[in-house]
Each structure stands twice: as structure tokens, then as C-alpha cells.
Nucleic acid binder design. Structure first.
Lengths: 340, 340
DNA sequence: GTGAAAGCGCTAACAG
DNA sequence: CTGTTAGCGCTTTCAC
């Protein structure tokens, strides 16, 4: 049989409540007693039963991460990894809930799943973090949540993001510094808040440089490699093609790179290519992709910290629960000055 | 307040035990009563509290997946995704436990983490599935586990894998069919069981074709892109270079591809490149990588099914709990007949 | 087929 | 500072 709190209490000659206090690091226990208890805990190899604990207290020590990413991209994987690791450090467990919002009834499914688990909080990743009906449901059951890069309605909950627009501006500016004037841009999927922001950053850098942006230089995309190929072919197939292409994420940048290879256009000799995210794929390309590093792991970890903070339930709108993490411009081999 | 079993029992005019029986799909309930109860459950939106249930019964409806993958490759992500989705279908939850076996004391940490959760079972992925001391610990606490591709000691538990050797043989054979005779091979990380098996498959295909394998044609690797670059440079930098290179996974194949690009060697014109796994990176390369599709998602799902099977606890060595899933040779653009 | 009573292992609330 | 008393919400006996 497994060791229970009673066994420990008995052997240590104290009440179960005292053991409980020690295990939870509460104050008001004499240091000597605490040591005695800890020793017995070690001896017996006692581990509190998480279910019993959750049943009698309000907390479950369980956090949820809701993910709607059919492609299961490096972005989602990195988020998960970051949240997982931090959760463990803080003695919480993470329950990842994959969601497919294309399927009718997904919200109800999701709510059912979490209703029985009594999560202490949830992390909402894009694009779920923008689905108001989901937010309302969570609020209705008073489940605290933190959104990652929602891009709007930021007072509604804790938020972790980066300065998407600033980052896109910085990348565009970098390309301009290299001497590029005719720059193509491939957009992300419209459901993500990052999409308009990255475009805005691109446009504002172009405008600030006094450069016109030909409408044909902005093509739609959806963050997939395939979209990058198609966008790349569209941009590079024109008679007067851009000397640089900024794709809204790395997978699309790789697609552009593939399109260039197909067309016999060299990178970065004939065309420079930039991505966004610095996901796992950006590094396994040749040439490696110049990109914006988005600290997805740290972002997820920050979300965990916010959720665990006891003060968060009281004041979810507090400024300190809105964290913007730094991005970084990573210059690799896919960008160079334009051919003269 | 949330709805409890009592509320349902009261409103339906039955005992809590009857509600419990209905919720658990037990026999011995009159159909009409069952319907009444179900209706009330719907009306009230009742969801059983997983903690209360786990506390009083033996089951937790929680499965663990232990992952030791510092690189957090597509392989691990795919496994996770497959297990996650199947777990939800079966009304279980999956608790992913990332592990870093390079850190002293990881086993104890892991055991602590799971002790409090009373998992119903665990999925062990490579290379954890080969760590005997871990297996012993799990057996000591009677936690059923299923191993993914352990490569040895297969009677010890349920196992899900593919025919690694056969797959490597098939790939090599395909390259031979194309006309290649001088084929380089890059090995995986030694801690994975797949590593010697893939090499064995390669060697046996070469031997069967009556071809000698120069020792210099087999270079070490560790499944990373970097190792692929290094291995590729080693193989392609030689005066008499191989006309094809078979890397033990996709990331390394991409590394070879990058090395070839650096050296000005065209793919597949001058050298053919093949990978293994068909992970997310294989498709975002140019040219796309010819590879072996390993159904990682299905493998993880199969592991979930085995763990949930009530018969598994009794007879973990039963043949039906050893499943070998089919692999598939995926021909893409990175392979072609050798230049004449 | 159905129900009553007794916990599962822990913590909250209150005493002392 | 420490202990006692009640449950948390469910399932398990074991009656009926």
C-alpha cells in the first residue's frame, strides 16, 4: 500500500494537519518539528496524493494549454515545451488540450474536458486567444486564463506577447539598410493577430523610408511552406522581381527559398529572404534564414508564472500581468545587399 | 457551485450510486432509469469530478508520456500529438513529462512527479525506453508502461515500433535500384535502438547486392542538422565521393543537403540524399527529401490503446501488445539515378 | 436492479 | 504553534 499522510503523522508523532502544513510550506511550524516530519517523509518516501489534495482544497495544481494548430508547427511545439518545463519547476502539471476549431462543437468538447479536471488556469495560444466565445465561457466558469499574443482587447486578461509590429519594422529596416528598395512581403494567416501587425510593421518601415509599396508586392499566405512556395513563385516570377522577400514566418521563408531554387534564382545573391519566429526549421535550411527570434519558450513560461501568481485571480488586468518580451533580429545567410 | 452527483441523484429521484453506475456505463440499470438519469445529467450539465473519482477508485484516467529529447525534434512532437489526440478520444488525459537524462537525479524527479499523480500508465519513448533502471522503478510501483521502439528485451512490456532494419534495407535497395553503388551512410545517436538497426539494414542491402562498404563511407551522427552538415562534408569532401548518401534521419539529411549546397554539389544531380522519419522538416526542404515515413502519431496512439486495454495489466507480454506498424518509402526530389 | 453507509487522502475551519 | 472535526465528490462494499 502507498504511504499516506496518516502514516507519516503517526510515525512522526504529530497530527496529520501538521504534516500537511509542512508539506505545503506553511508558516507556524516549529523548525524542529518540521525537520522531524521531513525526515519521516524521506524515510517513508511519502508523496501527497494529488487527487486528495485537489479534492479538499480549491487548487488542482493543473494548468491547461489549449492549442489549435493543425500543422503542429515548431511554434506550437516550442510553446508547449516552454510551458511544460516551467510547470514542472513550479510543481504544477500541464495538461495540453489539442483543439481543432474547424470541427463543429469543439468548444463544448473542450469545456467538457476541462470541467472534470478543475484546472487552476489555462494558457490560450493563437488563434484561440481571439475567440471571444471561448473567453466568455472561461470567464463564466471563472477559470483564469492568460493569452499569448492576442493582439487586441488586452485589458481582458493577462497577456504575453512581443512587439510584432516593431519586430517587423526592424526586419524591414534591416533589409532597407542593406540597400534593398523593392521588397516583397508574404502575409500570415488572417486568424492570427500577428498577421496585420507584421504587415503594419513592414509598411511603416517602407513608408518611413519614403518608398512606395506596390500592391503586387504583398501576397497572402497562411504560415505554411506551401504558401511560401506559391507566394515566392508569384513574387519571383514577375518580370521585375523584388530583390528581397520578407515572409511572415520561417516556414514560408523556406518556401520562398524553395521557389527560388526551382526558378534558378540564387539566395542571397539574386534575392534576399527573411522569415519570422526563428523556429526549428529556420536553422535547418540552406542558406539558413535571417529571421526574428521570438522567445516562444520564455513566453509560455511567463504565462505559467502569471497563472500561478495568487494575485492574478484578483487583478487580471494589472499591468504586471501584461508582459512584452524582447525579440531579436537574427542575421543569417539568406540576406545580403542586392546585386548592383 | 458546481453540479455534483448528489444534485443529479436528487433531481432524478435515484441514489447517487445509480448515477455513478450510469456515468460509468455499468450494467444492471433499467434502461428507463438510465435515460432519466442521462436527461438530468444533460439538463444540469453535470461533469463528474475527476479527482473525486480517482480518489475513490483505483483509476486516474491519466496517462504519462515521458520524453527525453533535448532537441525537441519533430519526432517527439509528432509522438506527443498522436498520444494527445488518442487520449482525448478515449476520455483520458495525457500528462507529458519532459525529462533531461543528462541531469543528475532525473529519475527520482520523474518518479516524484508521477507518484503524486497515480498515473494509469506511461508511454516511454526513445531513448528512455532502454533505461533499465527506469523500467525497474516503474515495475516496482506497478505502473504499466508501453515502450516505443526499444529495440530489445521486447517481452518485457508492450511495444510499438516499426521494422527499422527492413525500412533501412528498403531505402538502400531503392538507391541501389536507381543505380547507385557507392553510398554513404550517416548514423544516428548511439543511445537509440534505431541506430544499429538502420545501419544493419543499410549494410545488409549492400551485402546482398554484393557491394563492399568502405569504412570511410559510414560516419557517425546524432540526429541533428549539424551532424548532417559535418557528416556530409566528410563524405562529400573526399576525392572519390559517394553518389548517394543515406542519413539516419531527416534533419541530418537536410544537413547533408546544406553541405552539398556549400560545396557547390547539386542535389540530386551530383549526389542523391535520403533521410528517415518523414518529419516536418523533410517537407520544407528543397529539394524535398526522399525518406521513410514512420507513422509516429499512429505509433503513439497504439501505445495509448494498449495502456488503456484492461487486459494489458494482466498479460503485458501478450503478443497482441507488441505492435509493429508499417513504414513507407516516400520518394521525393532529393534522389535520382547517378550521373553517368 | 437499487440504495445506504463507509471511506479514498487530504485540507479548511476552528479550537486550544 | 498544534490538534480536532468535518467534509471535498465519488466509488466501493454489502445489504435489500
Amino acid at each position: 500500500m502507498t504511504v499516506t499522510i496518516k502514516d507519516v503523522a503517526e510515525k512522526a508523532g504529530v497530527s496529520t494537519k501538521t504534516v500537511s502544513r509542512v508539506m505545503n510550506g506553511e508558516a507556524h511550524v516549529r523548525p524542529e518539528l518540521r525537520d522531524t516530519v521531513m525526515r519521516v517523509v524521506e524515510e517513508l518516501g511519502y508523496r501527497p496524493n494529488a487527487f486528495a489534495r485537489s479534492l479538499s482544497s480549491a487548487r488542482s495544481y493543473l494548468l491547461g494549454m489549449f492549442l489549435d494548430d493543425p500543422a503542429w508547427s515548431g511554434y506550437a511545439a516550442g510553446m508547449q515545451r516552454g510551458a511544460l518545463i516551467r510547470s514542472r519547476q513550479r510543481h504544477y502539471h500541464l495538461v495540453v488540450e489539442p483543439v481543432d476549431s474547424r470541427i463543429e462543437g469543439w468548444e463544448i468538447d473542450l469545456m467538457h474536458g476541462i470541467a472534470s479536471l478543475r484546472l487552476d488556469g489555462a494558457i490560450l495560444t493563437p488563434p484561440l486567444c481571439r475567440m471571444v466565445s471561448l473567453l466568455e465561457r472561461l470567464e463564466a466558469i471563472k477559470l483564469p486564463y492568460v493569452r499569448i499574443s492576442p493582439g487586441e482587447d488586452e485589458g481582458r486578461s493577462g497577456v504575453v506577447d512581443i512587439d510584432e509590429e516593431g519586430a517587423a519594422f526592424a526586419m524591414t529596416d534591416y533589409l532597407l539598410q542593406l540597400g534593398h528598395r523593392d521588397i516583397g512581403f508574404i502575409e500570415g494567416i488572417p486568424s492570427h493577430a500577428a498577421t496585420p501587425k507584421r504587415r503594419a510593421g513592414f509598411l511603416s518601415a517602407m513608408h518611413r523610408a519614403g518608398l512606395p509599396v506596390d500592391a503586387a508586392n504583398i501576397v497572402p499566405g497562411d504560415f505554411t511552406f506551401r504558401a511560401g512556395i506559391e507566394g515566392g513563385e508569384a513574387l519571383l516570377g514577375r518580370s521585375k522581381r523584388p530583390t528581397a522577400i520578407f515572409a511572415s514566418n520561417d516556414d514560408m521563408a523556406l518556401g520562398v527559398s524553395a521557389a527560388a531554387a526551382k526558378l534558378g534564382i540564387s539566395v542571397p545573391g539574386d534575392v534576399s529572404i527573411a522569415g519570422f519566429d526563428d523556429g526549428p526549421t529556420a536553422r535547418v535550411a540552406w542558406p539558413p534564414i535571417t529571421t526574428i527570434r521570438q522567445p516562444v519558450g520564455d513566453m509560455a513560461a511567463a504565462a505559467v508564472d502569471i497563472l500561478i501568481d495568487p494575485a492574478y485571480r484578483e487583478a487580471p488586468a494589472d499591468r504586471r500581468f501584461h508582459q512584452q518580451l524582447p525579440y531579436e533580429l537574427i542575421v543569417r545567410g539568406s540576406t545580403a545587399p542586392p546585386a548592383s
